[in-house]
Amino acid sequence: MPATVAERQVRISCVAGRYLVFDIDDVLYIRRHHGICAVLTGTMPQNPTQNLFLGLPVELHAEEAKLLVDRKAAYIADELSDHLSQLTTMDETTRGAYLQHVKQQRRNAKLAFDEEKAKVQAMHQGKRKAASKANKTAASLEGASAAPEGESPSLFDPPTTTGVVAGPATTTTTTTPSKEALPAITPTTSSALLSGATPVLDGPIPASSYSLYKYLNSRGYYTTPGLRFGGDYSVYPGDPFRYHAHYLANSYGWDEQIGMLDVVTSGRLGTAVKKSFLFGAESPSKPDPDGGEGGEMRVFCVEWAGM
């Protein structure tokens, strides 16, 4: 596991100047090992009529993409040219391999689908059984008048059918799928298709707040876009799955004048949501005491005194 972790190269898809990640393993990997949670932007196929939970792809902002590239944990792929070249110049063997992959996924989908169906059927039959039992007791109580109702479930629910239905379902999981056509699938990533050399783009040019972002990330903080709180980042002491944000961070230039009103504004905004306002800048002259690239970061925190 550690070896693969060290070697893993995250593919960051550059699409029209934006940075996306499509592979869920990559997403989890950068979340676990690089402290980057990024932002889910896609529609969830399981539940496509809501905006609360979103799905793949994940969008990285330029700082995050640059951080990963600088750490040599990722490369940036020019998605359009890669796809177009692969799609237009595809030969039989690569196509065959890709189709084989798709077919395998279709088989898997079919298996999952069949299992699900068997489960649902079993559940329904369980319900029917209970219902028929109740009906039978009712029928026995009420006598001949309720007989037709008591009969109807038995049409669908002879005990032999359950065995028949359950039998093929369990066998399909191990052997051939049932004779229905395989369902079509849309794979999430093109990894099976793009086997050739990927045209790699240069690292992104991040915003001026990159140094602050890098500093926070190196200290184990997670960040999410802080725009809703009026800052550059909201800073979490760990994975946002588990923790509330502690800070609202803004980046400044080393010699930049910070208006008192800015401090008040951001401080008020942060305090209103129980975060302290944090600001930092990178020194152009002093080197980083930790030996990293770039200059020393100085970071301050402003808290509201309740006087």
Partner: peptide
Amino acid sequence: FPLSLQAAYALLIGNDGERGKVSL
């Protein structure tokens, strides 16, 4: 043959003003 979601993004997302594309 079927395309992936990633390929769909690659082929359909573009910059503003590109014909047959939509910006992200």
